[in-house]
Amino acid sequence: MAVCVAVIGKDNSPKFISCLNPELELQFHYKVHTSLDVVEEKLSSAGINTGDVRELYLGLLYSTEEHKIFGYVTNTKIKFIVVVESANTLLRDNEVRTMFRRLHNLYTDVVCNPFYIPGDPITSKNFDDTVKSIMVNNI
């Protein structure tokens, strides 16, 4: 169960951030923003050995006592960040991957919308709702 999901554009600006608890939104903004450090680190180190298809899933970016932050980068450098609670010990890596894959599909739907201009903040209600349900149900 995720507590925060964020979509970050290729220019590292937030395109979408949704938190389960709106009161903690600012805190999550900071967390997601900070995680970009690690994303960039991983991307630049991965850039050196450009072998075959890059793994989109970046794994655990960093963790705090309360939260674990996972990252995923599409080939167009769109970053998905998922924050989960550290206390949630049942969450396995595979489930996080699934979550990202779903997010990626959702994002693809958003971009396919001819009225969406790539690079704009995502305002799709459907996206928002589905992301919320992913966060809650972890499906």
């Binding site: 220019d11 590292n12 600006s13 937030p14 939104e25 600012l26 903004h29 900071y30 923003h33 970009l36």
Partner: peptide
């Protein structure tokens, strides 16, 4: 830093 990357909430805070 926040402004550069368009993190408006963080900028505001």
């Amino acid at each position: 830093t926040c402004e550069e990357e368009g993190w408006k909430k963080l900028v505001a805070s």
